Simulated assay, not measured.
Amino acid sequence: MRAFVFPGQGSQKVGMGAELAAASAAAREVFGEVDEALSQHMSTLMREGPEDELLKTANGQPAIMANAMATLRVLERDFGVRLAEHGACVAGHSLGEYTALCAVGAFGLADTARLLRLRGQAMQEAVPIGEGAMAALLGADMDKAAALAAAAAQGEVCEVANDNDPSQVVISGHRSAIERAVELAKEHGIKRALLLPVSAPFHCSLMAPAADVMAQALETTPPGTLTLPVYANVTAARVTDPEEERELLIKQVTGQVRWRESVAQMHADGAEEFVELGAKVLAPMIGRTVKEAASRSLVTMADLEAFAKEIV
């Protein structure tokens, strides 16, 4: 059993998708459709930058999705590897859950781009720049991270945002609380804590205004039928019902990304191979979570060709 997975925020970089676009009409079609949906030359921004614009969450979220979907389209059209035939389930990290849903037909490509543009804008506007922060805790498990967050909060928001793998947890909240957590980390037995270069405190209760925005958006653009099940971030459980998934996408804005648990559950349900599309971010996390499973990232045309030769 094979799971296809899709990366989240932080995986964008200038030059992303350029090789695929140069080599494949399928990739160019994806980038063109996203450009049209957003009334923006997103493909140019992805290819040429500037980096500070690409890193903005309102740009980064649809860009990451577009790159992953272009990778999938090339895999399917140019190399004959169809998701529905060669995969058993999908999942995505944070915004990657929208990409996963697009990949299994629950959202159209243009709608996914517009939803992620709105999601990025709403998340950025939920907290004034400079008032929120996130930090990665390396060498931390969930118990240590939760204890640290509780100690650092001191009446402010300091919450676990991402449970990425057995050795990496991310916290999110008010900047002063997150900075206290960084200072207190070693006292809590955590090897290292570092502030992340993000523009907002994602996946914590401070994002409630953004959740309200997405609730309205998903009311008018709800997910449709899924051709494969998705494992949802906030429950780490298999979902096939579009209405259930719509509710979970709303909760995801403020909720914890339970990635480690999602990977473990997919593996427990039979996934023996995990294939990441568009970046090399999730595969290393997966390798640390389920060491007996195979994990790989498909980014370049050579990656896609080699994968296709193995399974077709």
Rank of each mutant, 00 (worst) to 15 (best):
residue 5 V to D: 07
residue 6 F to R: 03
residue 7 P to I: 00
residue 14 V to Y: 05
residue 21 A to H: 08
residue 22 A to D: 15
residue 22 A to F: 10
residue 26 A to K: 00
residue 27 A to L: 00
residue 34 V to N: 06
residue 34 V to G: 05
residue 36 E to I: 10
residue 39 S to R: 09
residue 48 E to Y: 01
residue 48 E to T: 15
residue 49 G to F: 00
residue 51 E to V: 10
residue 52 D to Y: 13
residue 54 L to R: 08
residue 59 N to D: 14
residue 61 Q to H: 05
residue 72 L to P: 13
residue 74 V to D: 03
residue 74 V to E: 11
residue 77 R to P: 13
residue 81 V to T: 10
residue 91 A to Y: 00
residue 95 L to V: 14
residue 95 L to P: 15
residue 96 G to T: 11
residue 97 E to R: 02
residue 99 T to E: 02
residue 99 T to W: 00
residue 100 A to Q: 03
residue 103 A to N: 11
residue 109 L to M: 12
residue 113 A to S: 07
residue 116 L to I: 12
residue 116 L to S: 08
residue 122 A to I: 04
residue 123 M to H: 06
residue 125 E to I: 02
residue 126 A to K: 01
residue 128 P to E: 07
residue 130 G to P: 02
residue 131 E to G: 10
residue 136 A to P: 13
residue 141 D to M: 12
residue 142 M to E: 15
residue 143 D to H: 10
residue 145 A to V: 09
residue 147 A to W: 03
residue 153 A to R: 04
residue 154 Q to V: 02
residue 154 Q to A: 10
residue 154 Q to N: 13
residue 158 C to I: 01
residue 162 N to D: 14
residue 162 N to E: 12
residue 163 D to Y: 13
residue 165 D to Q: 02
residue 165 D to T: 13
residue 169 V to L: 10
residue 170 V to S: 02
residue 171 I to A: 12
residue 172 S to Y: 01
residue 172 S to M: 09
residue 173 G to M: 00
residue 173 G to T: 14
residue 176 S to P: 10
residue 181 A to K: 06
residue 181 A to D: 13
residue 183 E to A: 13
residue 184 L to P: 11
residue 186 K to A: 05
residue 187 E to P: 12
residue 192 R to H: 05
residue 197 P to E: 12
residue 198 V to P: 15
residue 201 P to A: 04
residue 202 F to I: 14
residue 206 L to W: 04
residue 206 L to P: 10
residue 211 A to D: 09
residue 212 D to T: 14
residue 215 A to H: 05
residue 215 A to K: 14
residue 218 L to T: 04
residue 223 P to I: 03
residue 224 G to P: 10
residue 228 L to N: 11
residue 230 V to T: 04
residue 235 T to R: 01
residue 245 E to K: 08
residue 252 Q to H: 10
residue 252 Q to K: 00
residue 253 V to F: 09
residue 254 T to R: 08
residue 257 V to S: 03
residue 258 R to S: 02
residue 260 R to Y: 02
residue 262 S to V: 01
residue 265 Q to F: 09
residue 268 A to P: 14
residue 273 E to C: 01
residue 275 V to W: 04
residue 276 E to G: 01
residue 277 L to F: 13
residue 278 G to Q: 03
residue 291 K to L: 10
residue 295 S to C: 15
residue 297 S to M: 03
residue 298 L to Y: 05
residue 298 L to C: 12
residue 299 V to C: 12
residue 301 M to W: 00
residue 304 L to Y: 11
residue 306 A to C: 01
residue 311 I to N: 06
